[in-house]
Design a binder for these strands. Structure first.
Length: 418
RNA sequence: GUGGGUAUAGCUCAGCAGGUUAGAGCGCCAGAUUGUGGCUCUGGAGGCCGUGGGUUCGAGUCCCAUUAUCCACCCCA
């Protein structure tokens, strides 16, 4: 127990962590160029925030939250997603008082008490963006464009952007009604899950993978059929923007996002290669959410991707990662008397910005060379009796195997500038 | 929450119809005549065979439970 991590969690150890850093670096760069600023919110919040924000009837709130009471009897929950907290922070810090829209991004761990499986963990990591205070369809397109750019920059292939409109509080009830009208008569023929969905969320029935259900649902009224004029125009404009940006998409009328707060645009990015969890990111517009958490009626749109899934997909697609840490030079102590000289050279090189290291296990010369090779050092510098006497350092190029003796103040010349 | 598979050295896996000191490859450490890595060779360390019960003269090997892990459903990132 003492040496095993809790279920559904992961250690990210050296060798792995460099991949994470690489992904994060690209994400931050893209955000920066699109004008999104980072926001860091607490990892836990008042439980109420998620209940209100994510929706009481969602799976997340009903059965997946890490909730506990703290020593002050407060009801606390580890965040299961990012949007609610960002909206809370936007309101609490009165960011609405500044220039609008406010474009934010976050990156960090989220917690959901789910059963782990490929690409699904109890502590996982999300990168997400939220735009508060912008209502035009152009910003929807920007968020999607930005998401796609992240994937592209990471080197992912075979991605599909699925988009749909979920309508607004005006037209959604209409859809619900006509769906129930359509399905009601043959409800008994649907699978038990769908029968259950009938009252709670008939939209989901369209999404059922059960073959019989999808047959029964053929010809059912779709969301797009029921869109009010305003929503239809909005959706049309979003698509126009995407086309102008040269971004391919497929309209997927079965795309229904599970979280309660979505309105209008919903989208999801699918990738192949990680089993059943083919969705590597998704988002949408949530014009009602801010009003639900605070008083303000402020439109919002957001998007999130799962870092674990991105990583799995990249590995599956054999994407190349930049090489992990490797020393510029490894200094070999070839005689006990050289110890202090080695130490000083090491400090000097590090001070100049080189990645430099030495042995600390009292290894033989040969073993030190071997060790330097394992560390993948670019150069090895050897200092022993001869070098001490001559005031020199023997430098060996570990790739070519060539070596030469240089004056100890000329080492950096061999290494190349820094 | 539901269903199924797996659990033997750091890693990937062997292990017979249940029978004495549990193996290999890789990795790790150390050597292969006196100051040099990557190839090769030699040696060494390292395993309550996930955990707890049970069946048996005897269990890594069979049964049950438990935990972890993997896969799928649900849902989601």
């Amino acid at each position: 127990m003492l040496t095993s991590r809790p279920r559904g969690t992961n250690d990210i150890i050296p060798g792995e962590v460099e991949k994470w850093q690489y992904i994060e670096q690209i994400i931050r760069d893209v955000c920066c160029r699109y004008g999104y600023r980072e926001i860091r919110t607490p990892i836990f919040e008042h439980t109420e925030l998620f209940k209100r924000g994510v929706g009481e009837t969602t799976d997340i709130v009903e059965k997946e939250m890490y909730t506990f009471t703290d020593r002050g009897e407060r009801n606390i929950t580890l965040r299961p997603e990012g949007t609610a907290a960002v909206v809370r922070a936007y309101l609490e810090n009165k960011l609405y008082a500044g220039p609008q829209p406010v474009k934010l991004y976050y990156i960090g761990p989220m917690f959901r008490y789910d059963r782990p499986q490929a690409g699904r963990y109890r502590q996982f990591h999300q990168f997400g963006v939220e735009v508060l205070g912008a209502h035009s369809p152009g910003i929807d397109a920007e968020v999607m464009a930005m998401a796609m750019e992240v994937y592209t920059r990471l080197g992912l292939k075979g991605l599909e952007l699925h988009i749909n409109s979920l309508g607004c509080p005006e037209c959604r009830p209409k859809l619900r009604e006509s769906l129930q009208e359509f399905m009601g008569p043959k409800l008994q023929d649907y699978c038990p899950t769908c029968q259950d969905r009938f009252e709670r969320n008939p939209l989901r029935i369209l999404d059922c993978k059960n073959e019989k259900c999808s047959q029964l649902s053929a010809g059912a009224p779709t969301i797009l059929d029921c869109l009010c004029d305003e929503c239809a125009v909005f959706f049309h404009d979003v698509k126009t923007h995407l086309k102008e940006l040269g971004i391919d998409y497929v309209v997927d009328e079965t795309l229904v996002r599970g979280l309660d707060y979505y309105t209008h645009t919903a989208f999801e990015i699918m990738a192949e290669g990680i089993g059943a969890q083919s969705s590597v990111g998704g988002g949408g517009r949530y014009n009602g959410l801010v009003g639900q958490i605070g008083e303000k009626d402020i439109p919002g749109i957001g998007y999130a991707l799962g870092l674990e899934r991105i990583l799995l997909t990249m590995e599956q697609q054999n994407v190349e990662f930049p090489p992990s840490w490797q020393p510029d030079i490894f200094i070999v102590t070839a005689s006990p008397e050289a110890e202090l000289t080695v130490l000083k050279l090491l400090a000097k090189l590090r001070g100049m910005g080189y990645k430099a290291d030495k042995d600390y296990n009292g290894r033989s010369l040969k073993a030190q060379m071997k060790y330097a090779g394992k560390l993948n050092a670019r150069y090895a510098a050897i200092i022993g009796e001869n070098e001490l006497e001559n005031g020199t350092v023997m430098i060996k190029d570990m790739t070519t195997g060539e070596q030469k003796e240089v004056a100890d103040n000329k080492v950096t010349e061999v290494l190349g500038g820094k």
